[in-house]
Design a protein around this nucleic acid. Structure first.
Lengths: 206, 206
DNA sequence: GCTTCGTTGTGAAAAACGTAACAATGTTAA
DNA sequence: TTAACATTGTTACGTTTTTCACAACGAAGC
């Protein structure tokens, strides 16, 4: 396997990709490193360095051709396979993410959501059908689900995570304020909104 | 002013504080660095180093006294003043955060939310009243609001951010996928859920 | 008292990350 | 054609962040 690319670089590449998509929708053709960097909130040097890792090369006079760079980054990020994403836990956060990502034009697709509440099962939330947690294995196969958004109460998080791992989920975006115990091969991104807010609060009065 | 503390250290300290609060609620009295580190998902060495910055010292035989460490971190993070937080934009994400933080027992308080939709103004969402955006200045004074959660559509984000800055907001948690232009003195934490999800997707099949 | 043990605080080493600088490039204008 | 110019790709450098390693410590057992 090739050398490991750092998490930060991947995050920035995803961001560039998103911005390039918007630019392309606006019919822009090319862009200079400092312009794209400014939109992404990074320095031009860092942007150029990030682009090195995907291998695309620009022109010293025209900058980057948007469609070419976009294709380069997408290819780098998506590689061969794709797979889809599921949301587990259709509470406030789960639904907010469904609504948010649903109207997103990117390549990611949320194909199923899961809950325990009988009132929610069978319903369709923002275009995505909700299934019983028991159907996890079946539906993961059916929809080729490879990653999951975990938005259940903290007390249930580990149990559900175990189920996800059993069913070969390899990436989890975890909103529960709990450190999940999973095998090293499973990637977990912890998003703790309370902690983030507290951090903002701190820096609001340095 | 003292030397600047890094963003990462602050984020981790907020996390430790949160965990210590839970431990205290469970009547635990003391904890070793490796135990607390494990719950936070960091190494023991890093935890000890972080605690160095707040100045609290533990005992080589008993580890850290929970109430003492909690007090130390809280004091370090909160300093003198406090101030409250507002949410601007009571859409799906805004409401999800209200629900999420509302049931949080921490010291932060969300005291007001704002929207443009006449149907929402005057309503109470999860215990927080919604005001018209025009009332920003009045209510910021009234509730001593120091930081804001920006959860409006991308197209409105910059305009609202300008209003917040005008009204002396010093910290913004920004959910809009836009690079906000604000003075250097204003801290912005960008939370781009689509980017985070794409990152997870990438690492789900390294 | 003395030894053993596990833990903390912290200096020093290592690794990761970001920045700066500049040769190479190709376009434009004279 | 030639010179001037702005931008890229990339190497070298500096800074930040993390990890390592160990002296200092105090409790417990003998």
């Amino acid at each position: 396997m090739a050398e490991q690319i750092s998490e930060k670089i991947i995050a920035r590449l995803c961001l560039y990709k998103r911005i390039l998509n918007e630019l392309q929708a606006d019919n822009a053709l090319s862009i200079y490193s400092h312009e794209l960097a400014s939109r992404a909130g990074v320095t031009a040097a860092q942007l150029r360095r990030d682009i090195m890792t995907v291998g695309y090369v620009g022109s010293p006079t025209k900058g980057y051709e948007i469609s070419g760079l976009l294709h380069g980054i997408s290819h780098f990020l998506e590689g061969s396979n794709t797979g889809t994403t599921a949301i587990v836990g259709v509470g406030n956060i789960g639904r907010a993410i469904l609504a948010y990502i649903g109207l997103d034009t990117s390549s990611m697709r949320i194909t199923a959501c899961f809950d325990q509440d009988p009132a929610k099962i069978g319903e369709v939330f923002y275009g995505t059908r909700c299934y019983n947690l028991d159907e996890l294995d079946t539906r993961i196969q059916q929809y080729n689900i490879k990653s999951a958004i975990l938005a259940v109460p903290a007390t249930a998080a580990q149990v559900v995570a175990d189920k996800l791992v059993e069913n070969n989920i390899r990436g989890i975006m975890n909103f529960a304020p709990v450190q999940l115990q999973v095998p090293q091969s499973v990637y977990v991104d912890n998003i703790n909104l309370a902690v983030s807010l507290e951090k903002v609060h701190y820096f609001a009065r340095q």
